[in-house]
Each structure stands twice: as structure tokens, then as C-alpha cells.
């Protein structure tokens, strides 16, 4: 199926099922769920983190903390045009906990590098894991996701678009 924005690789249903699976993986991998928190990276990682929190609550009956991280001030490319800055919201301490960073697409790894740097300015987590909805390859840094919704082999000139109801009024992942 193709839309104006390219080939659909995950539609609404598939996206929801994917998140349910990732939630289960997080539950399975972390015996002590109380020590886990989810931190979404702006913009769409934040919405995904909230959805994962809901799926984890459904699957395991545990309401885990969720926060939002803005990495604008930690990017390594400040001279290029930057998106709007959001405020980081971490209303809980991350010291000694397992932080699951949540983002929509894993690409070069630079965003995750910046997010890890930012997290360390908020505290000293016991460990950091990474959950992404899609991994499109082309890494420029030695970074790997612990939970991958879908692997999307792409060409360098292709673009991956993640749309979520919270921000874009539709759930879908497309490639163009």
C-alpha cells in the first residue's frame, strides 16, 4: 500500500501490536519493574513512552514512571537549524534505576548519544536501555537498541516518517 507520504510499513493496527510486543519484552527483561522508568525523547518518543507505560500497566499491572527528555542542548550539530526546544520533564529521580529511553526512529545514533549525555546531567541511572519503534540502520555511533519495534532496511536517501495520533492525527509508519 502506498500513500502520499510513501509506502506504509506499519499501519495503525500493526503499530499497536508492535508496541504491545515491545511492552512485553520490557516486562520480561526487567524482573524489578518498580526500578524501571520510561523516558521519551521529544517529540514522538514522548507519546510512545506514554503508550508503552499503558501497555506495561495492562500486561504487568505496574504503573511505572514516565518522563520526557529534550536533547536540543546536547546535540553535536548546534549550527544546523534546530527544532523547537521543549522542556525536559523528569519528575522523579533516576539515580540507581533502569531508564528505558524511548524514541521513534533509530538512525545515526547521535540523538541517543545526546540523550544519554543529558540523562547523566539529571542523575546516575543503574542502567540505560533503548526502545525504538523503528530501526532504519546507517549507524554512525556504536549504539544498539534493546527493543526494536520493526527493523526497516532503508537506503540512505530514503526517509522514514512516523505519525502518531497524539501529534499527527494518524498512527502509521511510512518510507519514501
Amino acid at each position: 500500500m502506498a500513500t502520499a507520504t510513501g509506502k506504509v510499513v506499519l499501519d495503525g493496527d500493526a503499530l499497536r501490536r508492535t508496541l504491545v510486543r515491545v511492552a512485553h519484552e520490557i516486562v520480561e527483561k526487567n524482573a524489578d519493574l518498580d526500578g524501571v522508568c520510561l523516558v521519551g525523547i521529544y517529540t514522538r518518543g514522548v507519546a510512545l513512552a506514554h503508550r508503552l507505560r499503558h501497555e506495561i500497566a495492562t500486561a504487568a499491572g505496574v504503573e511505572i514512571d514516565v518522563g520526557a527528555l529534550d536533547i536540543s542542548f546536547y546535540r553535536d550539530d548546534v549550527s544546523s537549524r534546530q527544532p523547537v526546544v521543549h522542556s525536559t520533564r523528569l519528575d522523579f529521580a533516576i539515580d540507581g534505576r533502569t531508564v528505558v529511553l524511548v524514541d521513534d526512529v533509530l538512525y545515526t545514533g547521535r540523538t541517543i548519544r545526546a540523550a544519554i549525555d543529558a540523562l547523566f546531567d539529571y542523575g546516575r541511572p543503574a542502567r540505560i536501555q533503548l526502545a525504538v519503534l523503528a530501526d532504519r540502520g546507517h549507524r554512525e555511533l556504536p549504539i544498539r537498541a534493546d527493543y526494536v519495534g520493526k527493523n526497516l532496511p532503508t537506503a540512505a536517501d530514503e526517509r522514514v516518517f512516523v505519525r502518531l495520533i497524539e501529534t499527527d492525527e494518524i498512527d502509521e509508519v511510512t518510507i519514501r
Binding site: S72, F73, Y74, R75, V78, D117, A118, D121, Y122, G123
Partner: peptide, 8 residues
């Protein structure tokens, strides 16, 4: 924050 500095 305790760390009042960003690397921007």
C-alpha cells in the same frame, strides 16, 4: 537540576 550546565 544539580548539574546546572548543558554542553550546547
Amino acid at each position: 537540576r544539580e548539574v546546572k550546565k548543558v554542553p550546547t
